[in-house]
Amino acid sequence: MTEVSQEPAPKTRGNFDHILYVLRANPVTLIAFGMFALLIFSAVFGPSLVPYDPLATNAANALQPPSTTHWFGTDNVGRDVFSRVIVATRLDLSISVAAVALSFVVGSILGCIAGYWGGWPDIILNRFLDTIMAFPLFVLAMGIVAALGNTIENIIYATAIINMPFYARLVRAEVNIRRDAGFARAAKLAGNSDIRVLAMHIFPNALPPMMVQVSLNLGWAILNAAGLSFIGLGVSPPTAEWGIMVAEGANFIVSGEWWLAVFPGLWLMIAVFTFNLLGDGLRDIVDPRKRT
């Protein structure tokens, strides 16, 4: 009565092997992860490794073009642009990661409730999300920061609020289609309560598409934070932050000092680009069906 399997059972891979496999299979993912590692490295160790103090001014050395001593040149008060760009990584990444984590958690909880139980919580949540999404999102974020005050926490809250509807919508749909799936019913027969079925069985299956959303969103959140700083809401000078640096540097582009705005802008672009590329790879890693 036994079925003879055609091939010897492949050794089941561990998580680490699986991540290596995904990276090997897709060079773009490998590049994205490499760039991501670089960003993390500069966020963690950057401040202690940069050649100059990002806040130290030196009027005698202002507006120097890029050179071997100042790779990205110096700004109008003589601060080293390279040091400032690297040091800013930590702040920008923290804001976006915190904001995305917050919207991921809140959005997932709301989406799970709406998708699993339906009924009036679903209706109320959907109208609430529609209301948020009806605003131009950046303007909404501006309004929130302007009303709550010009602090880093408020930038995080504002970014989280405008991103939250996307997570809630996505989770709601993913949970809803699996609500009556056989494995969810089987989990109930195994003695799981509704909440356990939802949290341990249904929600993890929504993770692959969520990962794509998370990584796209990280890039978007960095852009958003930088945008708020650019228009003067949020992080205040002289703190090193890409958005402010672009805003300040923009004044000097006309007079030919392009390096003030271009390098922070380039780093911003690289960060957003990295997160966008990361999405597919992350999905492959959390999707068990990609394991062979």
């Binding site: 799936a181 056989g182 494995f183 019913r185 089987a186 069985h201 993890p204 299956n205 068990p288 069906r289």
Partner: peptide, 11 residues
Amino acid sequence: FQDATDSLNPR
């Protein structure tokens, strides 16, 4: 359950 595929958690 009826559908063995649907009744096993893919994860």
